[in-house]
Design a protein around this nucleic acid. Sequence first.
DNA 1: GCAGAGATCAGCT
DNA 2: GCTGATCTCTGCC
Length: 197
Amino acid sequence: MKKLNPLNRSFYARDTIQVAQDLLGCLVVRQWYQHQLIAKIVETEAYQSDDQACHAFRGKTISNAALFGPVGHAYIYFIYGNYFCMNAVARSDALHAGGVLIRALEPVEGIDYMHVGRPNVSITNLTNGPGKLTQALHITKALYGTDLTKEGPLFIVERQEPLHAKDIVQQKRIGISKEQDKLWRFYIANNHFVSKQ
DNA sequence: GCAGAGATCAGCT
DNA sequence: GCTGATCTCTGCC
């Protein structure tokens, strides 16, 4: 495997929707108790501050402060009483807040340690949903605000192989009741680990 | 294989 | 009190 170079800050300082597409195929690296858990991003969604479905739409609060903070950091939130979801903060200068939700991953390395977080499931059910992948990678609020551009407990590295535009599918976002018409969900075509087709 | 409901809590109204 | 960027289990086909 090539060297794992973290994506730099300028990658995230661009239009949120563009970053959501460019994150497809990149690798999430989680350092967990001396182990390295690696998974490829296969599905994302874009959220930005002028969008009613975005947590930051109603303004800055304690819990969503990371969305307004420096780009390239992790915004992690707790939902439905049980689950965490992970975003990468990304936006151009024109926006006050924005982030890319990581919706699904393809397990690459350290799969045995992912099963520790999610026992008794098949590999295709390990990381094919936003709440599932945080369990498999042991992502909790303790990682809120983590800098994703530096090697540490959680970071994202560049693509190891090229991804062509024709392999990116654009669709409506999932699980929201507002702004349902926006086509801000992206996933890799024909990938087995996407949450839903 | 698919649809429906329950779990469970932080934050806002 | 209700809603939510979800998942799992149960019951039925």
